[in-house]
Every structure is written in structure tokens, then in C-alpha cells.
Write a protein that binds this DNA or RNA. Structure first.
Length: 642
RNA sequence: UGCGGGGUGGCGCAGAGGUAGCGCGCCGGGCUCAUAACCCGGAGGUCGUUGGUUCGAUUCCAGCCCCCGCGACCA
């Protein structure tokens, strides 16, 4: 029976540029695909971009182009990243392609026909300004909590997917398949999520508000929203409803790789969708952790987004791949730093592997006319090394099949370390003078070991390992790991010396951070992205702030909040404002009325603890005490501060 | 208060019911074929804390403390 594996990454949302997280997931999936191929599986690898939705529509508007033009460009950025990272995908799907949209419509229609999609009135408070609905609870003084703008009661048609109907079946599947979700802790998480009743899933948006989507086949005034649009790519991409044989070939062997942040959508939403569609569930969900930057989540607003392309340029795609695969345990978070990349390159790749290759080849060049030495007398340590070399392919296979990639790599590198020990102990560089045949035999052992190691690391660093294999006089990697064993190199084959395979790298600290951050400072919130212009605020920047004097009229605690007070302030306007301030630890509410303060009047309103705060009170902080900033003498309220 | 993830030698991380491992770094030695690489030896941990289950827990359970992410205590 043919062994098969079908691999997917999430389709990436075409509303931002690729970052290290995308690169990681793509490389990880690619690595597993290559390992499975090495272990005798036929493989198929699909990735792509998710291109519909509000954000894309809006970004396109902002950019002054059509959504189609916009996503063409963004999708290309993701597509280009793949070859740069030596990712070899078989297919790249875009959710705007007819081969996808048609399937989505057919799937929706079939669910509609069987009654799993139903229409219902959705009633809520719609904020024109925020372009979204709020529930009664969200509202603040009957205003939009985000913008402070008006909301209106809107009742509109909406289509729902009967997700709740499939909850028991999904739970059953989960219980019967303990290994459905990797790692096991994530399986637990999903199970506990399913202990609460599922709600049905809203899957539509009226075209009047969102035109950039796939129209519902049974109601063209609506487009489908997110779930059916995006998740179904995993099936449309392999021929669902179009090429049954192809679909049957791959779908039962689906391995979805995904970040832990989208586990619920993939296990619960996608799971129930498939049950409703009478399709089998994917074989496995492999949930990855996140790369943290300086122990903080990477985010645009912090300005710590790591660009995989520049890193690839700087250190080489394959060094980056090795780092990403080696320095994180699948499912756990790890912290990313360039320094760590350099360290990993130098210790594992340059010192251990590259240097071993180098010294071996030099010895073969000098003592054996650059040809693989003929077998010679064996010594005490030979058998042990041979055994190790022959065992490692199966060890790696076992680890890979249980998604323990870091163990697989570690075990492979152990062979390299063992060979460094071996070459030291057998000392061919010495022995060659009195017993060339014996020296040749020891070198053969190293070359054979390198051959096996190169094949086993090939899924992680395909080009570098091809180079290594070519140094050993091999045309390329083995077809499958089954044939991989000690003794595959032919005596007399010319070996080729090349430049160092993995040069040592120097870590250059970025110019800014000459002082490493102190431990004590770690607690401090990361500072927001510095302005491009050297951290200085321009005069114009300052003028944007409307600072005025004001007087506190009333003050009261906020229920449930420890540090917050709700203030009513008079800023010289026709009506007073409500402002929330974090001063409950420093001031008693009763003492506050009449206090003059400085108010930042044009701050974006924000709902805090159910109270809409319209502005910010300027405070100075000292010893954890918050102290009002006040004018030096009494002024009328509303006086401008410049 | 909530949800999730953590607290293991100087640093970065594995691990798992039976008296702790890996890499880096550090100290001492060796080698000279090699990319200041490689090899040998060494120092260094009461596995956050307190109870419980157990013949036995760092590994299981409960409480507590601390850290990180998300969220309503940030405006």
C-alpha cells in the first residue's frame, strides 16, 4: 500500500507582509513534507493566501486600488517568500481563484439543501463609524464603545451554520483519536472547549457592507464570511467536487500545520464543517507555538516584527531554516534573536559539522589522492560508529513520525559529535604516516557517516546537504531512507573539496542597543515603536494634542476595578465629559471635586470597564503614586495649553 | 477576577513516577588534520513554594507565589 501524506499550512491573510511566523510555519511544513518523502511517503504540499474580507477591502481602498489588484500584490509577496526559503510546495491556492470560489459555493449549497444552513434575523446595534455590530452589553451610554459614534438598531438577515448539531459527533471523534491534535496538551484544550455548548456560526455578511467575498449561492445579496471561505481551501485545493480520485488520494492523509492561535477554528469550526459535509476529518492537526521577540509577542504596534527575507539574506536561508527547526519544540513558544541564530550556526553547523567535513576532506586529499579510500583493517571503535550510523535513520524516522523534530535533529547531530570523537581517537592524521590503509579505513567511516547525516539533514537544509553530498562524490540524496546505511560510498570515487560549507558568523549587535537590557527593566512594558525620525516629536506632532485645563466635577469608584475612578470633568465645553483615570490608589473620590487638572481632550475615546472615557487626565508618577498635573494658578476651564 | 502558557545548573532549553539531561558559557588539560575549530576532565541544580497521593515525586493532585500572552483596570 502506498504511504501518503498531504501537508498544508494555513492560508496566509493577504493583508500584511510575511513575518517570521509565516516563514516558520512554511519551513516547518516543508521540512515535514521532505522527511515524509525521505521515509517513503508520496507527498503533496499546499499553501496559499486568504484574500477576502473587510480588512482587505479596506486596505485596498486606502491604497486607492481595487481589492483584486491589492491582493494580487500581497499574495505575490507570500508566494515569493517560498522559494527564498527553499520551500517546495506543490500548489499555491488563492481564495479568489474560481477553482476555490466555485467549490465554496457548491459546499454551501449542499449544506443549505440539507438544512444545515438556516436564515435568521440578526439584531444588534450597528455603528456606522466602526462598521460593526455591538451587543447591548458592549454599548456605552448607547454609543459605540470604539468610536463614541451613534449606533442604530439594525435587524437584518443572516445565515447560520448549524455547528451545534455536530458537537456530539465532534466530541466522539476527539475521544476516539487522542492523537488527532499534536501536542497532546492542545487536545486537552479543545476537549475542554467542547464541554460548553457550541453556538451556531454566523457565516454571512450582506453585500451592502462587504462586497469583497464569495456570494452565497442561495442568496446573492450576501457573501460568505471567513470560515467557509478560508478553511475549505484545504479541500478545494485537491479537487473536491471536481476530481474525486485526486481528492481521495490526498484528503485522508491531511496534516494541517497551524499556529496555536487558530486551533479552535481548525478543530471545532473546520471539524464540524467537515462532518456536515460528510467528509472525513483531517488526519492530524499539528499546532505550533510562537516565536517571541525579546520574550514579547511579535506585533506591528511594538515594531518588533522580524522580516524573514532580510534574515535569509543575512545568514542564508538554510541556516535560518536550521535554526527555526532546531531551536523550538513544536507546540511551545521560543524566543527568537539573531544572536541565537549565529550561536546555533557556529556551534552545530560550523564547528561540529562543517569543520568535520573540512578536516576529513583535507586528509583524504593529502593521503588518498582525493579519492574515497579502499577498505582497510578495522579497529576497535569502528563497529560502534557503524552501529550508530546504521541506527540513526530509524531513530530519526521515529522522532519525525511523533513530531519530535528537535529530537530528530539532536540525534543526528549526536552522530556528528561521535564522529568528531572518533576522528580524534583514531587519529588518521597521525596513523597515515605508518599505516595508510588503517587511516583510510577510519576516513571511510567518517565519510560514510557524513553521507548518512547529510541525507538525514537534507529535509532541513536541502541545498547545503546537496553540496555536502557532492563533496562526497554523490550525485544527490538517496531516494528513501530505507536504503540509507553504512557502506554506500564506492572506493575510488573522487571527492571534491569546496569552500567551507558553514562559515562561522560574527554576531553584530544592532548599533542601538549597546547596553544589554537590565533584568529589572524587563518588567517595564516594551516601549512603543520609536518614531522613524530618531524618537523626536515634531512640533506638528505636538500641535495634534489638544491639552486644556479642566475641573473635576464628580468622582466615583468603578465597580470591580481596583485602580480606576470615573471622573466627570468640566473642560469649558457645553457639557461635561466622562474620563476614566487610574488614580484610585492615590486619591479618594470624595476629595476630588473642584480639583483642577490638565486634560488631553482629543484622545480617541475608549471603553474601559464598561465606561466610555473621553480624554485623559495628565498625571505624573512617582513611587507608584499618581499625582495630578495642575496649572500654577487657578484658570478658567478650557484654557489651551501649548 | 477570567482564559491560556510557563517557573529545571550562569544563559538558552529538553525530559519524565524510581535518586536529573542537552547545547552554549566557564575552569583545567590534550591534539594540531581542521572554519581560534576538535577531543578529554571538571566545577555548577534542595527541578518556584507548601501540603497530599505513593514503597518512592522534580515528574501525579490541591493551595500559594512569581513571570509571559490575551482580555475590561491603560486613555
Amino acid at each position: 500500500m502506498t504511504k501518503r501524506s498531504y501537508f498544508t499550512t494555513p492560508i496566509y491573510y493577504a493583508n500584511g507582509r510575511p513575518h517570521i511566523g509565516h516563514a516558520y510555519c512554511s519551513v516547518l511544513t516543508d521540512t515535514f513534507r521532505r522527511y515524509h518523502a525521505l521515509f517513503g511517503y508520496e507527498t503533496h504540499f499546499l499553501t496559499g493566501t486568504d484574500e477576502h474580507g473587510q480588512k482587505v477591502q479596506k486596505s485596498a481602498e486606502n491604497a486607492g486600488v481595487s481589492p483584486a489588484e491589492y491582493v494580487d500584490k500581497m499574495s505575490q509577496a507570500f508566494r515569493d517568500l517560498l522559494p527564498d526559503l527553499h520551500v517546495e510546495n506543490d500548489d499555491f491556492i488563492r481564495t479568489t481563484e474560481p477553482r476555490h470560489t466555485e467549490i465554496v459555493r457548491e459546499a454551501l449549497q449542499s449544506l443549505y439543501d440539507k438544512g444545515d444552513i438556516y436564515q435568521n434575523q440578526y439584531e444588534g446595534w450597528y455603528s456606522e463609524r466602526a462598521e460593526r455590530f455591538w451587543t447591548e452589553k458592549d454599548l456605552v451610554d448607547q454609543k459605540c464603545p470604539e468610536t463614541g459614534g451613534p449606533v442604530e438598531r439594525v435587524s437584518e438577515k443572516n445565515y447560520f451554520f448549524r455547528m451545534s448539531k455536530y458537537q456530539p459527533q465532534l466530541i466522539e471523534h476527539l475521544e476516539k483519536n487522542r492523537d488527532w491534535i499534536v501536542p497532546a496538551s492542545r487536545w486537552q484544550e479543545v476537549r475542554s472547549f467542547l464541554e460548553n455548548p457550541l453556538l451556531d456560526l454566523s457565516i454571512s455578511r450582506p453585500k451592502s457592507r462587504l462586497s469583497w467575498g464569495i456570494p452565497l449561492p442561495f442568496d446573492e445579496d450576501f457573501v460568505t464570511y471567513v470560515w467557509f471561505d478560508a478553511l475549505l481551501n484545504y479541500c478545494s485545493g485537491i479537487g473536491l467536487y471536481r476530481d474525486d480520485q485526486r481528492f481521495q488520494t490526498w484528503w485522508p492523509h491531511a496534516n494541517h500545520f497551524l499556529g496555536k492561535d487558530i486551533l479552535t477554528t481548525h478543530s471545532v469550526y473546520w471539524g464540524t464543517m467537515l462532518l456536515a459535509l460528510d467528509l472525513p476529518l483531517p488526519k492530524r492537526l499539528v499546532t505550533t507555538g510562537m516565536w517571541l521577540i525579546d520574550n514579547t509577542k511579535m506585533s506591528k504596534s511594538l515594531g518588533n516584527v522580524v522580516d524573514p527575507l532580510s534574515l535569509g539574506d543575512k545568514y542564508g536561508a538554510e541556516v535560518l531554516r536550521y535554526f527555526l527547526m532546531r531551536d523550538i519544540v513544536i507546540g511551545l513558544d521560543a524566543s527568537f534573536s539573531e544572536e541565537a541564530v549565529v550561536r546555533r550556526n557556529n556551534s552545530d553547523l560550523a564547528n561540529d559539522l562543517g569543520n568535520l567535513l573540512r578536516r576529513t576532506i583535507t586528509l583524504v586529499e593529502r593521503g588518498f589522492d582525493s579519492k574515497i579510500p579502499a577498505p582497510g583493517p578495522s579497529g576497535d571503535e569502528d563497529a560502534e560508529l557503524e552501529q550508530l550510523i546504521n541506527a540513526v535513520p530509524r531513530v530519526v524516522e521515529e522522532h519525525i513520525m511523533s513530531h519530535r523534530l528537535h529530537d530528530a535533529i539532536e540525534q543526528t547531530m549526536q552522530v556528528v559529535r561521535a564522529m568528531n570523537r572518533y576522528i580524534d581517537h583514531t587519529a588518521p592524521f597521525k596513523v597515515v604516516k605508518e599505516d595508510p590503509a588503517r587511516a583510510g579505513e577510519t576516513l571511510r567511516h567518517i565519510l560514510e557517516g557524513l553521507h548518512v547525516v547529510a541525507n538525514l539533514l537534507h529535509p532541513i537544509m536541502p541545498e547545503k546537504m546537496n553540496e555536502l553530498l557532492s563533496n562526497l562524490g554523490c550525485a544527490g540524496p538517496v531516494k528513501t531512507a530505507q536504503e540509507l546505511h553504512y557502506g554506500m560510498l564506492e572506493a575510488g570515487t573522487p571527492i571534491k573539496a569546496g569552500p567551507p560549507l558553514f562559515p562561522r558568523l560574527e554576531f553584530e549587535a544592532p548599533p542601538e542597543s549597546e547596553a544589554p537590557p537590565k533584568k529589572a527593566e524587563k518588567k517595564a512594558k516594551p516601549t512603543p515603536k520609536p518614531d522613524p525620525g530618531d524618537g523626536m516629536a515634531s512640533f506638528d506632532d505636538f500641535l495634534k494634542l489638544q491639552l486644556v485645563t479642566a475641573t473635576i466635577v464628580t468622582a466615583e469608584p468603578i465597580e470591580g476595578a481596583e485602580k480606576l475612578l470615573k471622573l466627570t470633568v468640566d473642560a469649558g465645553e457645553e457639557s461635561t465629559r466622562t474620563v476614566v483615570a487610574g488614580i484610585a490608589k492615590s486619591y479618594a473620590p470624595d476629595d476630588l471635586p473642584g480639583t483642577s487638572i490638565v486634560l488631553l481632550a482629543n484622545l480617541q475615546p475608549r471603553k474601559i470597564f464598561g465606561v466610555l472615557s473621553q480624554g485623559m487626565v495628565l498625571l505624573a508618577e512617582s513611587d507608584n503614586r499618581m499625582v495630578f498635573v495642575q496649572p500654577a494658578e487657578a484658570l478658567p476651564t478650557g484654557a489651551k495649553i501649548r
